[in-house]
Simulated assay, not measured.
Amino acid sequence: MRRVVATGTFDILHPGHLFYLEESRKLGDELWVVVARERNVVHKPRPIIPEEQRLKMIAGLRCVDHAMLGDREDMFRPIAEIDPEVVTLGFNQKFSEERLVSQMRERGIRADVVRIGPFCGCAFNSSTKIIEEALKRRGAK
């Protein structure tokens, strides 16, 4: 059984997320998704959607076999427990593949890291674009 782990915030679910997860699923037999905890999202604005709701949405996708919230203290703990062959990154996730591989090796995690390319099939392929358009359409300044 070839396990793949995908991670992310998945704030406002959109076609870009679905593309990332479907492409990740193609790399193995089983897709595990680790949804970021609100308190651990420090590299961008805090999620709008609560973590339990984001988890439920991800778990409901056909391409996802298992979904879980990330660890509050150690982002590598769920990955070590799942013991995947592949960890995927979205095209805009702010990780260096080389550094991530090095950090995982230090923890005894032997997974390959694969970056999934961008989804360009529609205008609303990011949470930021959706939020900006919603504010524009609703007249917010």
Rank of each mutant, 00 (worst) to 15 (best):
K94R: 12
P47G: 15
D83F: 09
F76N: 04
M104E: 07
A67L: 09
D83M: 09
G90R: 05
Q53W: 03
I79R: 11
E73A: 11
Q53A: 12
D65Q: 04
L55K: 09
C63S: 13
V64T: 11
E106H: 03
K94I: 01
R105L: 04
D65G: 09
D65I: 03
F76G: 06
S102Y: 09
P47E: 15
M75S: 00
V64D: 11
M57L: 15
M57E: 05
D71N: 13
S96A: 03
Q53H: 08
F76H: 10
V101Y: 01
V64W: 12
L55G: 08
P47T: 15
L100R: 01
P84T: 10
R77H: 11
D74S: 07
Q93R: 01
M57S: 05
D74H: 06
A59P: 11
Q53I: 10
N92F: 00
D74C: 07
G90A: 02
E85N: 13
E73D: 15
L100F: 05
V87E: 10
H66C: 05
P45D: 14
E51M: 10
L55Q: 09
E97N: 00
E52C: 00
G70E: 11
P45M: 14
C63N: 06
G60K: 06
K94Q: 09
F95T: 03
E52W: 01
P50T: 14
R46H: 15
P45V: 12
R72W: 10
R77E: 15
D65E: 04
K56P: 00
R62C: 00
N92Q: 03
K44W: 01
K56R: 15
I79S: 10
G90E: 05
C63M: 11
S96E: 05
P45Q: 14
I82H: 14
E85C: 12
E98Y: 00
F95V: 02
